[in-house]
């Protein structure tokens, strides 16, 4: 099921949450809406679900597979929705939570109890919680609750799956496990999925495509590689990871130079014109790369990430005077601010 969002705007009082946003999600894709809080990503998701209505406009529309749903109630859209804080029915067992969407169907289309039971057990196997069917939500961990919420959303065989910061309330370790699990699950059941997150690592890891949003507008759409390596603008570059900002004069003009920490190198002798003298202020060797913090002569803070073997070879210490030089890949931007 493909999703098409056309010219959607939404204001809350004087606050413009979405400003004429259009978006297309292909059948079977997993697309992330990524942005800081207040960027409009959750509002957009809730408009797709039918929980919010867009500002009235002739041009605006929400379309599933060519069917215009703009005026259809959330009840009838057949959307699977997972909330950040799970929103499980606290007075129902895990089993009844998952069965809810089937039990509330009108008599004519409601499956028999046996069919419901088989379906719920199948979903419990999918989320690996078969033996917790009779538990209540308050007796589950956060990660387990979120898996139940996902199973509940999948029980109605939704046309599309919408996830609102699904792992936002979980701790880092559980979050990582669930991310990979979601990715595997998505390749098994291939339901068109839109995920809202403010966590760039999460978006980069699970998505087929990422939509970067800011101030109610889409800044860039593309694969994780595209948005990470070819950011369309300064905001995207900054939001998708740490960057070092340098002011440089290129051909007589003032330019901003943005470089990721792993695109910088540390050398002990001035190897080229672009090498900048700096002093090491902190070394953190915990992690997959060694993070070296430096201060340039101009007083700017610089962060460089170098591999462990390189770090051992250079024998760096806090206080050392070294040079920071960019590797071949670097990103320039016109300095439109000045």
């Amino acid at each position: 099921m493909s999703i098409e969002v056309r010219n959607i705007s939404k204001s809350f009082g004087s606050f413009r949450a979405l400003d004429n946003v259009s978006l297309h999600v292909e059948q079977g894709e997993l697309v992330s809406l990524l942005g800081p809080s207040g960027s409009g990503k959750t509002t957009l998701l809730r408009i797709i679900a039918g929980l919010e209505t867009p500002d009235p406009s002739q041009a605006s529309a929400v379309i599933f597979d060519g069917e215009n749903l703009t005026t259809l109630s959330a009840k009838d859209r057949g959307v699977g929705f997972v909330f950040q804080h799970y929103a499980l029915f606290r007075h129902m067992s895990v089993f009844e939570n998952i069965a809810f969407g089937l039990r509330v169907r009108p008599k004519a289309t409601r499956p028999s109890d046996d069919v419901i039971k088989a379906k719920v057990m199948e979903l419990l196997r999918l989320i690996q919680l078969e033996n917790l069917a009779e538990r209540f939500p308050s007796q589950l961990s956060g990660g387990q609750r979120q898996r139940v919420a996902l199973a509940r959303a999948l029980a109605i065989e939704p046309r599309i799956l919408l996830l609102d910061e699904p792992f936002g309330a979980l701790d880092a370790k559980v979050r990582q496990g669930l991310r990979r699990w979601l990715r595997r699950l998505h390749s098994e059941i291939t339901v068109t999925t839109v995920l809202v997150t403010h966590d760039q690592d999460e978006a980069l890891e699970v998505s087929d495509r990422i939509v970067v949003m800011n101030h109610g507008k889409i800044e860039q759409m593309g694969t994780p590689e595209e948005v990470f390596h070819k950011p369309a603008n300064e905001f995207v570059m900054d939001f998708l990871g740490q960057v070092n900002l340098f002011h440089a004069r290129v051909e007589g003009q003032s330019r901003k130079l943005m470089v990721r920490p792993f695109d910088l190198d540390i050398v002990t002798t001035k190897s080229s014109d672009s090498a900048v003298p700096a002093k090491i202020t902190r070394i953190n060797a915990a992690g997959s790369a060694v993070k070296v913090e430096l201060t340039s002569e101009a007083g700017d803070a610089i962060l460089v990430e170098i591999p462990h073997d390189k770090h051992r070879g250079l024998n760096l210490k806090v206080g050392d005077a070294v040079f920071v030089s960019p590797r071949e890949s670097k990103v320039f931007f016109e300095d439109y601010a000045i």
């Binding site: 039918g50 009840k75 029915f89 919420a149 029980a155």
Partner: peptide, 16 residues
């Protein structure tokens, strides 16, 4: 009212 929203998205009527 998130639980109510969840119920609506699962197809429940206002009365349900």
């Amino acid at each position: 009212d998130e639980e109510e929203q969840a119920a609506m998205l699962l197809g429940a009527s206002g009365w349900q």
